Amino acid sequence: MTNAAVITGGGSGIGRAIATRLAERGWQVVVTDIDLSAAEATAASLPAVQAGPHEAARLNVTDAAGAAGLAEDVSARLGLGAWVNNAGISFMQAFVDVSEEDYDRTLDINLKGVFICGQAAARAMIAAGRGGQIVNTASMAGKQGRVPFLADYVASKFGVVGLTQAMAYELGPSGIRVNSVCPGFVKTPMQDRELEWEASLRGVRPQDVQQLMLDETPLGRLQTAEDIAKVVGFLLSDDADAVTGEALAVNGGAYMD
Rank of each mutant, 00 (worst) to 15 (best):
M1C: 10
M1Y: 06
N3W: 05
N3G: 14
A4T: 05
G10N: 13
G11W: 13
G15K: 00
A17P: 05
E24H: 13
V29I: 03
V29K: 09
T32V: 04
D33W: 11
D33E: 05
A38Y: 12
A39E: 07
V49E: 13
Q50M: 08
A51N: 08
E55R: 12
E55Q: 08
L59S: 05
N60L: 08
A64Y: 09
G69C: 09
G69Y: 07
A71L: 14
A71K: 09
A76N: 12
A82E: 11
A87F: 15
S90M: 14
F91T: 13
A94Q: 04
V96C: 08
S99W: 07
Y103Q: 11
R105A: 09
L107M: 05
I109G: 12
K112L: 03
I116L: 09
C117E: 13
M125L: 08
A138L: 00
S139D: 00
K143E: 05
K143F: 06
Q144E: 09
Q144V: 09
V154H: 11
A155S: 04
S156V: 12
A168Q: 12
E170F: 01
G175H: 14
C182T: 08
V186T: 06
V186Y: 07
T188S: 00
Q191K: 13
E194N: 13
L195P: 10
L195V: 06
E198T: 13
A199I: 09
S200F: 09
R202S: 03
V204K: 11
P206M: 00
Q207K: 11
Q210R: 15
D215E: 01
T217A: 03
Q223W: 12
A225H: 04
A229S: 03
V232T: 10
L236S: 13
D238V: 05
D238Y: 12
G245E: 01
G245N: 00
E246D: 07
L248M: 14
V250P: 01
V250L: 03
A254G: 07
